Computed example of a mutant assay.
Amino acid sequence: SHAYGFFGPKGIGKNRLVDFFVQALLCEKKDGIACGQCRNCVLFANDNHTDVYKVVKDPEEKNIGIEKMREMRERIYLAPSISDRNIAVICDAHSLSADAQNSILKVLEEPPKSAIIILIADFTDSLLPTLRSRLLNIRLAHISIGEMIACLEREYPGVSANSVKNAAHLASGKIDLARSLIADKTLLESAEKDYSKALLFLKSPKNERLKMLYDIFSKSMSFIEQQNSGIKFANSILAAAQWSVYEKLGINESPPAFKSDIKSTPNLAKMSKGLFELIQMMKRNIAPRLAFEQFIWNLN
């Protein structure tokens, strides 16, 4: 295939998997597994391979525009300089504008023999059906808490058991997010505070929930900052709601620091559905604060 799509929630491990995949494609041994020692493997590991072109969304931009795709097309039609492949990796592909996606489609209609295009996206709703149909789609799923803890204990033998359990719990099946939390104590502490705030949101009446939005969306924030803050808090609430449901059903047990005393499981399940819709609205550039206010008013 000339085109691949790696899809799954943010923090699930898509980027790491794509790195393994690209390195294996470039490896001179050509046995499906990167040797890590040949020239191509070393250059790629050092982020210095001239036959790999990465497209990343600018933090202040709402989407990836057609200009970046024009640059990608120019690169993909060049002859490889070191290996026998020209690989374009489009990160945050869920942010591609419609024009940018159509530009990719034109490349896929008659791709150069050496070209491989890889899209990495948190979700597929914003991708054109015609584009998705041209990709070999690979969807990544959440892994169990037990598997995450075992993996983290192997990778970080010097980290305390409590930190490992807390990171696995907060990551909710997203292994790369758990790794980030383990690697950065400040980030882990911040995530623990966000989770505690999310539990408070679940327990609070409607008027208190609305007041909490003043802390989430300050007037000085840009639209992108509000969007990121809103999605982050919504994900924290979603994780807290889901774990509260799991506790009541006896499916999984939360670490002591994250125990909840919420009893209304049906309401939590309904809230989780609303949170999924809220996150998708914010990802589609709906005004974050207005979307959150509507979500709160719609709750019983």
Rank of each mutant, 00 (worst) to 15 (best):
P256A: 11
A257T: 09
D215V: 07
M72I: 00
S204D: 13
A183N: 12
D84A: 07
P266W: 09
H169Y: 14
V159Y: 03
K283P: 05
N15W: 02
K14H: 02
E61P: 03
V107D: 01
Q37H: 14
E277P: 04
R70Y: 07
Q37L: 14
A34Y: 02
R75C: 07
I116L: 01
S244N: 08
V22A: 04
A34P: 05
S254N: 15
S272M: 13
C91R: 14
D51A: 07
L202I: 06
F233E: 02
E277D: 15
D58P: 04
M148C: 10
G32D: 08
S254W: 05
E109P: 04
A183V: 09
I262S: 07
G173S: 05
G36S: 06
A24I: 04
H2E: 00
C35Y: 09
M69K: 03
M148Q: 13
V159L: 10
C151V: 11
Y246K: 13
R179Q: 10
A88H: 01
R73G: 02
I104K: 02
K193E: 15
I12Y: 02
L78Q: 14
L26Q: 03
K211C: 09
Y156T: 08
I145D: 14
R209P: 11
E189K: 14
N40T: 07
E71F: 02
L135G: 00
F21W: 06
A171C: 05
Y4R: 00
S81N: 12
S160C: 08
S103M: 12
L278W: 05
I138W: 10
L170P: 04
E192S: 15
D125A: 12
I231C: 01
T124K: 06
A191I: 11
F21N: 03
D125T: 12
D184T: 05
Q280V: 06
D184I: 09
G8C: 00
V107C: 06
R75W: 06
L278E: 07
N102S: 06
L275R: 06
P80H: 01
W297K: 13
F276K: 14
S133M: 04
F233M: 11
D215Q: 13
A100F: 07
F233L: 01
A241E: 05
E225C: 01
N252M: 13
L131M: 04
L187F: 12
N298A: 14
Y77K: 11
N15A: 12
F44W: 10
I182W: 09
I182E: 08
L128W: 01
S180Q: 15
W297T: 13
K259N: 10
T50E: 11
C35V: 09
T124Q: 10
G32K: 02
P9C: 03
I90H: 04
R139P: 03
D84V: 05
M148P: 04
V56I: 14
F44P: 09
Q37Y: 12
P80G: 02
I104S: 02
K248R: 14
Q280D: 13
K57L: 11
E208Y: 10
F276L: 15
K203Y: 12
A79W: 09
S103L: 08
Q294F: 12
K30S: 11
R154L: 12
F201D: 12
M282T: 05
L268I: 05
I296K: 07
A240Y: 05
L128F: 00
I82H: 08
T186R: 11
F21I: 01
I64M: 03
S180M: 12
I76F: 00
